[in-house]
Every structure is written in C-alpha cells, then in structure tokens.
C-alpha cells in the first residue's frame, strides 16, 4: 500500500480546496470501501481528505416537506431515523439489508453512493479490468460472472453497483447534492450513477473534486407505501443477487403513483421506467404487474451464467408490488 498524506477538513469549502490543492486526492468518509481498496492497491491516493467530521451529520425536514440527509449521516443512523422509517420505509429497509451492523455504523450516506463495484476482477490487480485500468480488458465477461449485470452492460464492463441504499434513492426520486469549486448543484439520484458504455472507469456523474454534501428526499413519495426486497446467498452480509425497491400508491383500484428500481442487475440502480409507464393509471393486479415487468426485462441481456437474475428480479419486483397493492385501502 502506497504511503499517503492525511488531511482533515473542517468545512465543505476547505474540503474542496484541499482536494484541488492535492492532485490524486480522495475524500474519506467511513472508509469501509476506500480503505480496503487502498490495501488492495486498487486505489492509490496521494492524499486523503477526511470529510467525516464535516457538519453534514443531520437528517432534517425542510419547510416544503422534503427531507435532507447530510452526507455524513451513518447508514445505521439513517435507517433508524423516525422520519425515514415513517415516510420512506423503502430507504430504511434497503439500508438494513446492506452490509453488516458494524459496517453500517461506519459507512456514510455519501460514501455509500460512491462505493465501487465488488467485481472480483476489479479488486485483483493481477487481472484485466477496464474499470480499474481502462483498455486492459474485462476478465469477468468470459470468466466468473454469476453476480454480474443483465441490463445495460457494455462490451467494456459487466459490473454491478453494489449499493442497496442507492436503489431505494432511485425509486424515491431523490436528489444528490454536490459541492464543487464551481459551486453547488444537484443531480437526480437516478441519473447519478452511469452505465458503463466505453467509460466504465466513471461510476457516476460526479466531477473531479466535487463532494457529496447531502441527499434530498422529495415530498411526493413521502408517506406512500414503499418496500425493498433483496435476494442473496446468505441471510446477512452478502451483496444483492438482485433486489427491488418499489413505491406504490393505489386509489380506486388504479395505480396513481409508482416507482420501481432494481438493484444488483446493472452498473447503476436500474429505474424500471417502462414498467412504471405501463402500470401508471392501470389496474394493480397480477396480470398488469407481469406485463409491465416483462416489458421492462425485454431489454435484459443475461450472460452465460447469470440468466437466473431475469426471473429473480422479476419475481422480487412482482412480489413487492403485490404486497404493496394488497395493503392499499380498498374502496
């Protein structure tokens, strides 16, 4: 592991300045992923700018009913927060489905969004990986790829994004708040992560030096029925084979509001927009769910060994839709 300089930022402005002044710097939050990658030699920052003590540790309700989550709020605190549990259960459930208790205590909201894929070829310096070393090739495509993408992958990269939280944020139409030297901006959570295309080294739309300062949960889905479901190889501490986050509102037997996002199947949380369009305004029944999910998954391109993910993610989403619909008030 390469020697590095450690600096601690006291303000957001100081953090972005320190980053700009130290080429090859990385922001350090909980360190649950970055430090591992440094040990493996995958990340070799010259400087770590510790942002974990920035005043971004609060969950607050704003006057318009939206909820702002500071980027340094720990995953365990966010999952347990009453505002999140009451209004955005899908987010609380997704967080609790991720990692282990110890990791959730350390991991931050911003860091969770920026974690890297757990593709074993990405993590192994002795193997080719276009994400880690652009142009070196992809070891996974013809190799061991049961856990890899079925949607939106490219000839360059078949990795998945590992976050559970980000899948819920995509379904909640959350906004990611960024602070850079050019000022502040927000990006839709759903557009924050990228598809690999021919630049698999770029996981997100974040610009160099920009810092995630927070996540904004909009008022629209607040209080609507929502849920997250994840399938995995063991009961805890395993990444999703596939997952589904759903927000669903049914009135007078018609779907008034629906958001669906898949996890574990693509390079980013996969918003199932075709399924949402097919469902909106229609009946909340089995046939409609099946039709909508089939339409969404028509785009799936499974690899040699991961075709099981197509029925798996379909079943997960169908199950969550069904349960949410069943819980809707009848008129």
């Amino acid at each position: 592991m390469k020697p590095f300089q450690y600096l601690r930022a006291r303000t957001v402005e100081e953090a972005t300045t320190l980053y700009a002044d130290h080429p090859g710097a990385r922001y350090l939050g909980g360190g649950t992923n970055l430090v591992d990658l440094m040990k493996q030699g995958v990340e070799t920052p010259g400087t770590l700018v510790d942002v974990s003590r920035l005043p971004l540790g609060e969950v607050r309700e704003l006057p318009d009913g939206s909820v702002r989550i500071g980027a340094m709020v720990r995953n365990s605190d966010l999952a347990a927060h009453p505002l999140v549990r009451e209004r955005y259960p899908v987010l609380s459930q997704a967080l609790l489905a991720g990692a282990s208790g110890q990791l959730r205590n350390a991991a931050t909201t911003g860091g969770n969004l920026l974690q890297r894929t757990r593709c074993p070829y990405f993590q192994d310096l002795s193997k080719p990986c276009n994400k880690r070393a652009p142009g070196s090739g992809c070891g996974a495509r013809e190799g061991v790829h049961r856990d890899h993408a079925i949607l939106g992958h490219s000839s360059q990269c078949i990795a998945t994004h590992p976050s559970d939280m980000a899948v819920a944020l995509a379904a909640l139409d959350a906004q990611v708040e960024l602070h850079g030297r050019q000022g502040e901006r927000t990006v839709a959570a759903d557009a924050f992560h990228r598809l690999p295309g021919d630049r698999p080294d770029q996981d997100t739309e974040i610009a160099p030096g920009e810092l995630v300062t927070g996540v904004l949960l909009p008022p629209a889905p607040a209080g609507l029925p929502s849920a997250y479901r994840k399938a995995r190889d063991r009961a805890s501490y395993a990444f999703a084979l596939a997952s589904a986050a759903v927000v669903l509102s049914v009135e007078d037997a018609r779907i008034r509001y629906v958001r669906i996002a898949f996890g574990g199947v693509a390079h980013r949380p996969w918003r199932a927009r075709r399924a949402e369009e097919a469902l909106l305004g229609g009946a909340a029944d089995d046939a409609a769910f099946s039709r909508a999910l089939r339409a969404e998954l028509a785009a799936a391109e499974p690899l040699r060994d991961n075709a099981f993910k197509v029925p798996l993610v379909r079943n997960l989403a169908h199950d969550v839709l069904t349960r949410l619909a069943a819980a809707a008030p009848r008129h």
Binding site: S100, R118, P120, D233, R234, A235, S236, Y237, A238, F239
Partner: peptide, 10 residues
Amino acid sequence: AAYHVPVQAD
C-alpha cells in the same frame, strides 16, 4: 465477503 461462510442469521 465473497466466500460465504454462514453468518449468525443463517
């Protein structure tokens, strides 16, 4: 993380 020894929850 990749070689899945059972955890307590299993």
